[in-house]
């Protein structure tokens, strides 16, 4: 399996990564190198092996359902570029 330039541009677009014209080809070649590695791994017979979802073979710890966080929006909003009436303001987005 390998990627073409259109697929690379589409993935970049989905990931909101800007690619300059010449860059797309370099990225494609790098990604295709990764795909070659994946191809070698795919060739290994993994029948009967549980897919691994995490590097640690441990179950996750659970938290009791208690409110532990206070209202700190004033602190958090000090680093926001623009706020009003407690809201973060962003460029207009509407579908």
């Amino acid at each position: 399996m390998s990627l073409d330039l259109d697929q690379v541009r589409r993935i970049a677009d989905l990931a909101r990564i800007a690619l300059a014209e010449g860059e797309a080809e370099r990225v494609r070649d790098e990604l295709n190198g990764v795909f070659a590695l994946i191809g070698r791994m795919q060739a290994v017979d993994a029948a009967g092996v549980e897919p691994m979802a995490h590097g640690q073979d441990l179950a996750q710890r659970l938290r009791e359902d208690r409110v532990t966080e206070a209202d700190r929006h004033a602190d958090f909003q000090k680093i926001a570029p623009e706020t009003e009436a407690g809201l973060y303001l962003v460029p207009k987005v509407i579908e």
């Binding site: 710890r61 966080e69 209202d71 407690g86």
Partner: peptide
């Protein structure tokens, strides 16, 4: 551990995890 009550003032129930500050990690509610 932020509250879920409806109708609170904007962003008063959004913790560091909820606003995705770097370095925060999710812990699942039992």
């Amino acid at each position: 551990g932020a509250a879920t009550a409806f109708g609170a003032p904007p962003n008063s129930q959004a913790s560091a995890v909820d606003i995705a500050l770097p370095g925060t990690l999710p812990v699942l509610n039992r």
